[in-house]
């Protein structure tokens, strides 16, 4: 199964690589920013439209 761990946007925590952040670049009509959300390395990435293979 493809998981977040296989994704370019996944940044594991140093002290607990099973957990990490999904960091993405967003450009909306007013501003550009990076957003981050906690995810688990083992989270299912199959249905994630933002998945990018490492």
């Amino acid at each position: 199964m493809t998981t977040c761990e296989n994704c370019k946007r996944f940044f594991p925590l140093e002290d607990n690589p099973e957990k990490g952040d999904c960091v993405q670049r967003v450009v909306d009509p007013r501003q550009a920013y990076y957003k981050s959300k906690p995810v688990n390395a083992g989270d299912d990435a199959v249905s994630c439209s933002s998945f990018q293979k490492k």
Partner: peptide, 8 residues
Amino acid sequence: NKSIFITD
């Protein structure tokens, strides 16, 4: 668990 962001 909320999303956070940093604007350019």
